[in-house]
Computed example of a mutant assay.
Amino acid sequence: MADNRCPTKLESKSKSVQEVVRNSEEPPGKYFYEAGVNGVLDSSLPVLEIPVIDTSRLTSPSTSREEVEKLRSALISCDCFMSINHGVTGSFLDPIRLVTTQFFAFPMEEKMKYSREVDTPEGYGNDLILSKDQILDWTDRLYHKVSPEDQR
């Protein structure tokens, strides 16, 4: 059985999603799922509902145990969740959205100054490529650690 994993060898300097869209190009094949592969586009499979975690309930003595169990279950079964009542205000998020919009509007040369390095998710780029058969997400990312401060 062949091992398709090859993290550093498969890193590519392919065009970003923004470049492909701006040039009205057809997306590369690595962004296409085939019907029935990995359960994607297979209508016979149930649609996964993303669990909703009420973050405010995590700090309440009367509801925290139940909400922690929901969170644990969500992370085990789904690897993700939607957080509500988290206390993050629009006035906090607005400047973050503005800076994000400004960054992605930069010319490619400027964004590439912040490219992520091979084998790390941090920086500008797209999916880490872990397999030659991997289907990639149709997205460009900017990922930076902000906490703890000594890891920025």
Rank of each mutant, 00 (worst) to 15 (best):
residue 142 L to E: 05
residue 123 G to S: 06
residue 6 C to V: 05
residue 104 F to T: 00
residue 62 S to P: 01
residue 108 M to A: 15
residue 124 Y to T: 00
residue 144 H to W: 08
residue 95 P to K: 01
residue 26 E to C: 14
residue 74 A to W: 01
residue 149 E to S: 14
residue 60 S to I: 05
residue 81 F to S: 04
residue 43 S to A: 12
residue 48 L to I: 13
residue 111 K to Y: 07
residue 127 D to L: 07
residue 16 S to R: 00
residue 79 D to M: 09
residue 67 E to D: 03
residue 49 E to C: 13
residue 151 Q to T: 05
residue 134 Q to D: 03
residue 130 L to N: 10
residue 76 I to F: 11
residue 2 A to K: 14
residue 38 N to I: 06
residue 5 R to P: 01
residue 121 P to L: 03
residue 54 D to C: 04
residue 50 I to T: 11
residue 145 K to E: 11
residue 90 G to R: 14
residue 4 N to A: 14
residue 99 V to F: 08
residue 150 D to M: 04
residue 94 D to N: 06
residue 63 T to P: 00
residue 96 I to C: 10
residue 147 S to T: 09
residue 23 N to A: 14
residue 103 F to S: 03
residue 80 C to M: 12
residue 12 S to E: 15
residue 2 A to V: 12
residue 7 P to F: 09
residue 84 I to Y: 09
residue 9 K to D: 15
residue 27 P to V: 15
residue 22 R to P: 03
residue 71 L to I: 06
residue 13 K to Q: 10
residue 87 G to S: 05
residue 46 P to R: 10
residue 35 A to L: 11
residue 18 Q to W: 02
residue 50 I to W: 02
residue 89 T to V: 01
residue 44 S to Q: 10
residue 31 Y to E: 03
residue 83 S to F: 06
residue 87 G to A: 05
residue 141 R to Q: 11
residue 130 L to Y: 07
residue 50 I to L: 06
residue 6 C to D: 15
residue 106 F to C: 06
residue 52 V to C: 10
residue 62 S to A: 14
residue 51 P to Y: 05
residue 88 V to P: 02
residue 99 V to H: 09
residue 24 S to L: 13
residue 82 M to G: 01
residue 114 Y to Q: 05
residue 136 L to W: 00
residue 127 D to K: 04
residue 68 V to M: 15
residue 77 S to R: 07
residue 64 S to I: 02
residue 125 G to D: 06
residue 66 E to T: 13
residue 122 E to S: 05
residue 25 E to P: 03
residue 122 E to T: 11
residue 86 H to Q: 00
residue 113 K to M: 08
residue 23 N to V: 02
residue 121 P to V: 06
residue 127 D to W: 04
residue 42 D to L: 01
residue 58 L to Q: 04
residue 103 F to T: 03
residue 125 G to N: 03
residue 7 P to M: 07
residue 119 D to M: 09
residue 144 H to T: 09
residue 79 D to H: 13
residue 100 T to Y: 04
residue 150 D to L: 04
residue 99 V to L: 14
residue 63 T to W: 02
residue 47 V to L: 15
residue 120 T to I: 11
residue 11 E to T: 05
residue 67 E to K: 01
residue 115 S to N: 07
residue 149 E to M: 13
residue 79 D to C: 14
residue 104 F to E: 04
residue 99 V to P: 01
residue 13 K to I: 07
residue 21 V to A: 05
residue 112 M to R: 14
